[in-house]
């Protein structure tokens, strides 16, 4: 099940749990160190609209579409990215 506006659009889900075609808005990146820095530097900052573009034949890695380009992440990396539903009332374009 994807992201929806239940709970006022505040319920966060891990990027790795979404299916192809679903989208969401980045809420935060977990962890620290070079992986978090890298993810942020690639433009996955809070408020960014992301769509799951495709999954590799073995379901890992996943590929996402945002800011006009496509990025692939291992599932374990995508676990660090928490998303909120996009376009819910009260937080259009992402809740901050």
């Amino acid at each position: 099940m994807g992201l929806n506006c239940d709970g006022g659009g505040k319920i966060e889900k891990r990027l790795s749990t979404l299916s192809v075609g679903e989208s969401g808005v980045v809420a935060r990146i977990e962890g620290d160190g070079s992986l978090k820095r890298r993810i942020l530097d690639m433009g996955l900052v809070p408020g960014t609209l992301v769509r799951i573009e495709r999954k590799a034949p073995l379901n890992d890695p996943v590929s996402i579409w945002f800011r006009g380009y496509e990025l692939s992440l291992r599932v374990e990396e995508a676990n660090a990215v928490l998303l909120r539903p996009a376009g819910c009332a009260g937080c259009a374009g992402g809740c901050k």
């Binding site: 992986l35 890298r38 993810i39 690639m42 380009y69 496509e70 692939s72 992440l73 291992r74 990396e77």
Partner: peptide, 10 residues
Amino acid sequence: ESSQLVMELP
């Protein structure tokens, strides 16, 4: 050292 993917698909 961790292995990372985080790779652009140009």
